[in-house]
């Protein structure tokens, strides 16, 4: 295995290469810019946030209000409890950028394993896994989340589990489709004729060559997971309250949208721009991959 471990891992390398090529797609560039902006915000939240996101300053302050006690301007105003919206949005980025990638990675781990097994081995493995996947996918997603979270309670862990459970079958379907195609390639036959194990074939011969569509799908899916986390927060099923979370912010301020629209609009802009970033990146990657 040394030769393979010596060579840079193909997926990491190709991801880098794709990003370098993205320079040719302005859509992809904008997407990357939006994502990097929020990643930066999330990483440096403690430095960037002017206030403690939980501190109560002054209720119902409109954007641009001067807060006398701390001597700062509340650029985005405060919410009904008097917490600084700018700081909450900044910390909210951290929340979403922890849970969304975590949930997506878990879903991918499960989906890829199931998809490879189903697509490469075929036979009853395939039948059983596909049927289970079909059944899960036939649930309207949000109904599924609501039932799971209403039953087991709202916590970060449960959200990750629920998202994994609901997304893995979709990923499995894609991986399975790709594996079904790739397993007929001659290089797979060649590795079979030298007696490679199924594990080796799946991991070295099939998975790396399926990465293109999977990376694009992962971007779209990340965007969708972000929306899901937002929606759960908005429905009051998200993370337990004091933690700043964009969907939750909209939920709390819903009743006051008439008088204080900033309380709802700002988190909505935040979540939309981040999702847009991922969708644009996916489009850019797709465009670039079609080009050569």
């Amino acid at each position: 295995m040394t030769d393979i471990s010596k060579a840079p891992t193909p997926s990491a390398l190709s991801a880098l290469r794709s990003i370098a090529i993205l320079r040719e797609s302005w859509i992809g560039m904008i997407g990357t810019g939006l994502i990097l902006f929020w990643v930066f915000v999330a990483l440096f939240a403690p430095l960037l946030a002017p206030h403690d996101p939980l501190a109560i300053l002054q209720p119902f302050a409109k954007p641009g209000t001067f807060h006398v006690k701390s001597g700062t301007t509340l650029w985005l105003g405060t919410d009904n409890l008097g917490r600084d919206i700018l700081s909450r949005v900044i910390w909210g980025a951290r929340t979403v950028l922890i849970y969304a990638p975590l949930a997506t990675v878990c879903a991918y781990a499960v989906g890829i394993i199931m998809g490879l097994a189903a697509g490469y081995h075929r036979g009853w493995w395939d039948t059983v896994l596909s049927r289970i996947g079909d059944i899960i996918l036939s649930f309207p997603v949000l109904v599924l989340y609501i039932i799971v979270i209403a039953t087991f309670g709202a916590s970060g862990f449960n959200i990750v589990i629920a998202i994994t459970f609901a997304s893995a079958p979709g990923i499995m379907r894609i991986v399975r489709g790709l594996a079904l195609d790739l397993r007929n390639r001659d290089y797979v036959a060649a590795s079979q004729t030298r007696g490679e194990t199924s594990f080796y074939i799946m991991v070295v011969e099939i998975l790396p060559n399926a990465r293109g569509p999977l990376i694009v799908d992962a971007c779209v899916r990340l965007g969708y997971v972000i929306i899901t986390i937002g929606v759960l927060g908005f429905l009051g099923l998200g993370l337990p309250p004091p933690k700043p979370d964009w969907g939750g912010m909209v939920n709390e301020a819903r009743g006051m949208a008439m008088i204080f629209p900033h309380m709802t609009i700002i988190p909505c802009v935040a979540i939309s721009s981040l999702v847009l970033g991922f969708n644009l990146l996916a489009d850019g990657l797709r465009e670039v991959s079609l080009r050569d």
Binding site: G223, V250, C268, V269, I271
Partner: peptide, 11 residues
Amino acid sequence: TSIPEFASAVF
């Protein structure tokens, strides 16, 4: 497609 339903409802 990037704007969740609750956000477009807000906007």
